[in-house]
């Protein structure tokens, strides 16, 4: 097999370099999400009170964005690879309860509780991934099954072991500082975890070769396998990452609020999908970007929190999110069509 070495460097210099042009811009999946974010931010900055643009306002939506964003990133990568993971809705309370039961109820060292929580996420992710590749059942159905299974398991085990559906946990200070505390009184420390995760995912998807494989899998799994991409291992790895991210979020919340509940987390399922789709990821896979998911997360958080800074009844927030989702999808479709048909020099043939 040839390598990339067999075109001498001097030939490369003779080629025109790619220029920054309109084509490059509209080909980016995040353009629609950025427009959406600018629009909703402007909307709430205009209709909301002054607090919205002050740190107190920023904290309110950044805290929402961080928790949602940590889950939405791997869900987005999975969607680009052509899979869905909705079991995250059960993995968040599962991760929360695991650390609370292990370290709170049984008093094991906090590090053991954190390890157990992440390990559980890893195992559930493996199960999701292996079931998906082995059975050929759509991952939506597989993870729907594990969603309910994990939910039942958490409830059953929690009540059996602790006799309660809510377990307290008091973590040591340094653990609180790292995973669950407020910076400058209002910013959750998970915001920094989220930003670090954004950078990591950006590297994987857009800078490493694995990113290319993820796009290829979502574009055409059969062809991807034929060119030698380890599609099965990659699928399992992505599912493991999304489950672990969900249990990480649950664990951080337990440490922050000093207690865990078996319920909650279900809203993350739809919220993460909305976020990712608003961020320009194609629901059927093969197209999307981390920057888009980042903007999508912020857009969602701004809408869900911005309403509290306005005179409007907060009940309208869902309406705005629904309309926004449809608008975002239409915009993204338009941009995708433009990107496909865009060619800088029409009419020039060889």
């Amino acid at each position: 097999m040839n390598t990339t070495q067999n075109i001498p460097a001097k030939h490369l210099d003779e080629l025109p370099n790619a220029r920054f042009d309109l084509g490059l811009l509209i080909r980016r999946p995040e353009v629609g999400a950025f427009i959406g974010l600018a629009f909703v931010f402007g909307f709430f900055a205009f209709f909301g009170n002054a607090n919205f643009v002050l740190p107190i306002g920023a904290a309110s939506y950044l805290n929402v964005a961080a928790n949602l964003g940590i889950v939405a990133l791997p869900v987005g990568l999975l969607m680009i690879a052509g899979e869905l993971d909705i079991s995250i809705g059960a993995m968040i309370p599962a991760g929360a309860m695991t650390v609370a039961i292990v370290s709170g109820h049984y008093g094991a060292p906090i590090v053991v509780g954190i390890g157990a929580s992440l390990l559980l996420g890893f195992v559930i992710g493996l199960i999701n991934g292996i079931l998906t590749i082995r059975t050929g059942v759509p991952s939506l159905i597989v993870t729907l099954g594990t969603l309910f299974a994990v939910q039942g398991l958490v409830l059953g085990v929690s009540v059996a072991l602790t006799g309660s559906t809510s377990v307290p946990l008091s973590a040591p200070d340094w653990i609180k500082t790292v995973f669950g505390s407020y910076v400058a009184n209002s910013f959750q420390v998970t915001i920094f975890w989220w930003l670090a995760f954004v950078v990591m995912c950006f590297f994987v998807l857009h800078m490493s070769r694995y990113g290319n494989w993820i796009f290829a899998m979502g574009g055409d799994r059969e062809s991807a396998r034929n060119v030698g991409i380890p599609t099965e291992r990659l699928t399992v790895a992505l599912f493991a990452t999304s489950s672990m991210s969900a249990s990480f979020v649950g664990m951080c919340q337990t440490i922050l609020y000093s207690s865990a509940q078996v319920s909650g987390g279900m809203s993350y399922i739809f919220n993460s999908i909305v976020t990712v789709v608003v961020g320009g990821v194609l629901l059927t896979g093969g197209f999307g970007s981390v920057v888009g998911i980042f903007f999508g997360t912020l857009t969602f958080a701004v809408v869900s929190q911005g309403i509290y800074f306005t005179q409007f009844d907060a009940n309208w927030a869902s309406l705005i999110i629904g309309v926004l989702l449809l608008l975002a999808v239409l915009t993204n479709n338009t941009f995708r069509k433009m990107a496909l048909s865009y060619s800088p020099k029409k009419g020039r043939t060889s």
């Binding site: 290829a216 574009g219 034929n226 093969g286």
Partner: peptide, 11 residues
Amino acid sequence: GGTFPLMSIGR
């Protein structure tokens, strides 16, 4: 061509 319509030519 067995190709990926939403990927760039280079990729």
